[in-house]
Nucleic acid binder design. Structure first.
Length: 427
RNA sequence: GCCGACCUGGCGCAAUUGGUAGCGCAUCGCACUUGUAAUGCGAGGGUUAGGGGUUCGAGUCCCCUGGUCGGCUCCA
């Protein structure tokens, strides 16, 4: 009971909505609309670093980058089936190019355009843009795709549940026989990347078909095969596997990665979803070695889910104390008095040249006040310099928890900071 | 979306039974030039989410719209 109370208090302190305002990361201006966020410079830099690193890793892992528009004619979502089973989750259509005659009757029917709630149909069109060979597979398309979903007002929750958000979305088109290899790679990739962002405690959930329910598409044999494959891959990962019978989408089974945060809460992070439906609907095929036309299987996967949501989860996981590589301002230099400012600026330019986000607090506040301000801003390192440090060519560290190390030689200080950032460690 | 609560300067809060908005932080200016969580003084900034109504008079009462929060349901 008391523990529960403490847990709630801790959660409230970490609430990303609160920290988002306190740390000036993002906001939801009423003028824009419910569930639609803007990222401020400090949140923007964190997001950029997150995205940059993700892009780099995707590039290294054989993904190709694609881009698709935010709006499309209804036709595309009719083909994909989204308008049939997902329409209430979509923003209502924009009616374009309607023409009326003099009597006000419709002369030319309006064309409906929708904001996209998903990226997959676009990627399928890219797949279809040319004849595909088995040699093209697996084809891995990645996009930071911004989508819009008309979430019910009561479910909106800061940046973790919004109406506009950006998925780190990838679709892999694979031959049926290479599903296992590809899934293994994807799962490893996902886990590795999540660990880089600081989440380390995972378990997996396997969502499977509900027996006897006719809504599921695809032959039984491919379901059985795919489900067994997913299970094998999941088991081989060595992580705990929790069954979720009946939890599969109608178009395929999935594995989801559940991560525990710093205070033990579980968040569903990445999903790896097999899809037998869209390849069918878009009539996707490739030419096999024997010359026959074959249908690829699609793997949907997002490892952040959405960047915004992941951002929110990390904010709460770290309680706003982002590790140096993600922190908006990584280092603040605080001179004991004005005369030591230029000395710190010298160190700053050295760090800045190495890509470090450092500021020198030259304001005329008192030193204690500066320390207070930057502590509350959760800056990972404060470098303080006064007469003693300057005369020794050194600098003093102050960390977020209040601990300090004085008289660190300048070169050592620089090296330490660069190393921490490069290794993505928390301090 | 449903049920309930709430919405006062950038942020956090005050305003007796309805009587014409205050404080702290932040901001700006001046002075202070300081060894590890808040230097002092001064100034500017709100007509109380938006609209309508009741009233001699509304931040305080009623209605509508928007937004927020909690719960339900759902989800990335």
């Amino acid at each position: 009971m008391k523990a529960h109370q403490l847990q709630l208090e801790e959660a409230a302190k970490r609430d990303h909505r609160r920290l988002g305002a306190e740390l000036d990361l993002f906001s939801f201006p009423e003028e824009i609309g419910s569930g639609l966020a803007v990222f401020h410079p400090r949140g923007g830099i964190i997001r950029k670093v997150m995205e940059d690193y993700s892009r780099k890793r995707h590039e290294e892992s054989g993904y190709e980058f694609v881009y698709s528009p935010h709006v499309t004619k209804a036709n595309l979502f009719e083909t994909s089936g989204h308008l049939e089973w997902y329409a209430e989750g979509m923003f209502p259509p924009l009616k374009l190019d309607e023409e009326l005659d003099d009597d006000g009757n419709v002369k030319r029917q309006a064309q409906d355009y929708y904001l996209k709630p998903m990226n997959c149909p676009f990627h399928c069109l890219i797949y279809k843009s040319q004849a595909r060979s088995y040699r093209d597979l697996p084809l891995r398309m990645f996009e930071f795709g911004t989508v819009y979903r008309y979430e019910k007002s009561g479910v909106l929750h800061g940046i973790t549940r919004a109406r506009g958000f950006t998925q780190d979305d990838a679709h892999l088109y694979v031959a049926r026989e290479s599903i296992e290899v590809e899934l293994t790679n994807v799962l490893n990739f996902v886990l590795e990347l999540l660990r880089d962002y600081g989440l380390t405690d995972f378990y997996l959930e396997l969502s499977t078909k509900e027996e006897g329910n006719p809504k599921f598409v695809g032959d039984d044999d491919i379901w059985v095969e795919a489900t067994q494959t997913l299970e094998r891959v999941a088991t081989n990962s060595g992580l705990q596997l929790v069954p979720d019978p009946g939890g599969a989408a109608f178009y395929g089974p999935k594995i989801s990665v559940q991560a525990k945060d710093a205070i033990g809460r579980t968040w569903q992070m990445s999903t790896i979803q097999l899809d037998f439906n869209l390849p069918e609907r878009f009539d996707l095929e490739y030419t096999a070695p024997d010359g026959t036309k074959q249908r690829p299987v699609m793997i949907h996967r997002a490892l952040f889910g959405s960047i915004e949501r992941f951002f929110g989860v990390l904010t709460e996981h770290y309680a706003g104390h982002f590790p140096p590589w993600l922190a908006p301002v990584q280092v603040v230099g605080v001179p004991v008095a004005d005369e030591f400012s230029s000395y710190l600026h010298g160190i700053a330019s050295e760090l800045r040249a190495a890509g470090v986000r450092i500021q020198i607090d030259d304001s005329d506040e008192r030193m204690q006040k500066k320390i207070r301000n930057h502590t509350m801003a959760k800056v990972p390192y404060m470098l303080i310099a006064g007469a003693e440090d300057q005369s020794q060519g050194a600098v003093s560290f102050r960390f977020r928890d209040g601990t300090q190390i004085n008289g660190i030689p300048r070169s050592e200080a620089v090296a330490r900071i660069l190393k921490d950032i490069a290794e993505k460690v928390q301090v």
